[in-house]
Design a protein around this nucleic acid. Sequence first.
DNA 1: AGCGTGATGACATGCGATGTCATCACGTAG
DNA 2: CTACGTGATGACATCGCATGTCATCACGCT
Lengths: 186, 186
Amino acid sequence: MSRWRPGARERLEQAAIELFVEQGFAATTVPQITARAGLTTRTFFRHFADKREVLFGGEEIPAMATRMISEAAPGADPMTILVEGLRTVAESRFEGRRDDLRVRRQIVRSDPGLRERDLRKRDVVSAAIRDGFRARGVDPLRAALLAETAVTLLFVSLDQWLDQDGDRPLFAIVEEALAALRQAVG
Amino acid sequence: MSRWRPGARERLEQAAIELFVEQGFAATTVPQITARAGLTTRTFFRHFADKREVLFGGEEIPAMATRMISEAAPGADPMTILVEGLRTVAESRFEGRRDDLRVRRQIVRSDPGLRERDLRKRDVVSAAIRDGFRARGVDPLRAALLAETAVTLLFVSLDQWLDQDGDRPLFAIVEEALAALRQAVG
DNA sequence: AGCGTGATGACATGCGATGTCATCACGTAG
DNA sequence: CTACGTGATGACATCGCATGTCATCACGCT
């Protein structure tokens, strides 16, 4: 084995979530997190830019968006690309993780600072989609509107999906939301 | 005159914007702002919850949204209420302030933390619209989608409006964005 | 065996943010 | 005219986040 136990980042994420649930985000200090993970404060900030970031590790979704849009068939309709992308993201990144996501949502809702960070992460997704469509030649206004709409559909549906008692698939709710949106604005 | 020069809040806002332009948001300390405004650090935090908030003083837009939605004609179509609300906000809160808003946008763009705060302010607007429609009996899914769409239309259009060299009215761009959205999702 | 590399620990520091109490001017009641 | 309440501000202290710097140690490569 190496000098240090492996998985420092994962241990920090786990310890942080535990402490946030136990005593709240604001009441949890970084030294408490690192103590539980068996590391030092300085190491925490080498893995995460700030205390909030420990809850928002992944950059996979914007990367998926960029890839899926750039690899779509040359003449494909943007809205078709969008819906297929939403299906892929819903099924690969959210489906089957409802309990974890509910815990996360509860923590995020408990702190305005975490809500801000959450919104910025969504904005990064939106920017990736927007830039992806622009690279395909979609005009900037439409690209921006499509990107914002995609993020709206995904996260409004995500909230409904986490609220429900049953187990309707997330993407079914996304499709329902899209139909509702079309009716509402049309 | 009173013991203290009046307009402490306005002086702090003015001094902060000046310093942010001169030397950047991160490089500006609260003591620098208060020194220029002739006040103390403690007084700054009595007027603003944190350093970012000095750029986001107004709560008028969510209040306008709540009022306009609740006072609309009983049977009015939600989308009609929305568009009329966008017209009112565009003309009363943005039109004629392009230079100020450009400076503000530049400052906000220069710092990720300010971008986060900006997104949260938009989210407050969205929540006000959503709750307003729910109070009218609109079903929750549609209320959330309408609210997010309204915020998207307003701020995507605002960006285009600040980018343009000419002087098309903001609301004209909002209408163009709505047409583009209808075509894109329909 | 020696060296480079990368992750971590140890130490120091600045600033944001907050709690507490004192100070002073104004308005109002008596 | 005096006394008191009220509200804004100043002065002081404190905590925790965030960051810079250097040392330490294991591993892999040569």
